[in-house]
Nucleic acid binder design. Structure first.
Lengths: 232, 232
DNA sequence: ATGGCCGCTTGACCTACGTCAACCACGAAG
DNA sequence: CTTCGTGGTTGACGTAGGTCAAGCGGCCAT
């Protein structure tokens, strides 16, 4: 890794409050790798050799069972995945593939575990990160078990609107079939569900979404802090 | 708290590898409380004042949205809940109620956070516990998104059979309506789904379940380590 | 330019599941 | 013993969502 790359890496959230020497020690055996789109980075069931951090691009985390497949999340720069498997030295529970061309930082699992065992600041860092991840999944589980497809889409749109700085017009960050899988429905159903939102002034033209009446959509979606607020 | 109670508490899994003085320091401001069945212990959306540990009895963790409700998990002795909220100093994401009469250890949140900040062993303990909890929820999310009700029930039965020491005959640990909610279906649907398992030699007489042909049920359920194995 | 591929949409149909209501079994309280 | 309440079951029906197939439009490569 080059010096400028190392400088870039140490600003990652997982290294917050960790001593600089410790960060360098962990980065020494690490790789910063480039992948084209559509590559499987990690396969469910394999032992966890690396802690992965997305530096650039998008990574889809998904899982398969029988002939079905579902995407658990889509990660962007700064987010890392499969921390729990690395900390516990277990197999990956999910697979991951690059959705776009991507740069990924690969931290060898044993180095991470050693740092976890020796460095209290890093251990705390991982703990808070794990706690946040845990809460995210819990929210997603509630989203799935308590809401219909229409409600999930409506709430996703509202959450994404906020993420985009309250923009009432934005482009979908990934393909509709990925969104469908993330929301837990078939692509065809997503199409129909978008169509069902036209009475609420949601316009769809290709990947461009326009939310014509935020209040109407909010009344339909009924967002809740304990499911939809990422800071709660 | 009495001396014998304190001795009982320090054997809890969350205190593994934590120095005895530290444990005592955390237990000093703690309460060991008894609750009758059916009491709400924690309400979703409230700030997290206590880390709860079930010492005796059963606790149902659930969440509500609009007029719906779903149970996220049912906890028994030794398991603790809402750790993530305590560590991050956020509100509870889920509610909890006692399903039976129960004894619960209540550790004040600020004491837990102080110990987390000062004691590396305890921080690591929380981190691994959080990592395990994280993986459990991920498995449950996959269970929900990738399987039908029939598959969820079949797999739950197999998992529970193992938990009971490979007993082919056992009693349900809680009411069927709770099981239905845990599995993510209406109580009526659970009844019908049980009925649909008779061709696979599953007999139901009240709360007693008899699995007549483990192989047949396994062939139907197709359990997977990355969803069903609690040690994976 | 054009042929082919891929993502998306639409329609028709089917299945899994939720809902509502009646009914039954069992146990607690009178 | 009777009565009532609660948990569970069953039937009839409605709805959400999956599936299959056809068609459409944009985009890339020849």
């Amino acid at each position: 890794m080059r010096a400028d790359e190392i400088a870039e890496m140490r600003r990652l959230r997982i290294f917050e409050d960790v001593a600089p020497e410790r960060i360098l020690e962990m980065l020494r055996p690490a790789f910063l790798q480039r992948f084209p789109a559509g590559v499987e980075l990690v396969r469910e069931g394999d032992p966890a050799d690396f802690l992965h951090v997305v530096v650039e691009g998008q990574v889809e985390v998904f899982s398969a069972y029988r002939d079905r497949e579902t995407t658990v999340s889509v990660l962007g720069p700064g987010q890392c995945f499969i921390m729990a498997a690395v900390v516990l030295d277990r197999v990956y529970l999910k697979s991951a593939r690059s959705l776009t061309a991507a740069r990924v930082l690969l931290l060898p699992a044993d180095a991470v575990r050693r740092a976890f065992g020796e460095d209290a600041a890093f251990a705390r860092c991982l703990a808070t990160d794990l706690a946040q991840s845990y809460r995210m999944v819990v929210k997603e589980l509630k989203n799935q078990k308590l809401r219909t497809g229409l409600e999930r889409l409506a709430n996703w749109l509202l959450a994404h609107r906020i993420e985009r700085g309250n923009a009432n017009r934005f482009e979908l960050p990934f393909e509709k079939k990925v969104l469908a899988s993330r929301l837990g429905m078939a692509p065809e159903v997503l199409s129909r569900t978008f169509a069902a939102l036209t009475p609420y002034k949601v316009k769809v033209k290709g990947a461009i979404i326009e939310i014509g009446d935020v209040d109407a959509l909010t009344k339909l979606a009924r967002p809740t802090a304990t499911i939809d607020d990422p800071d709660t």
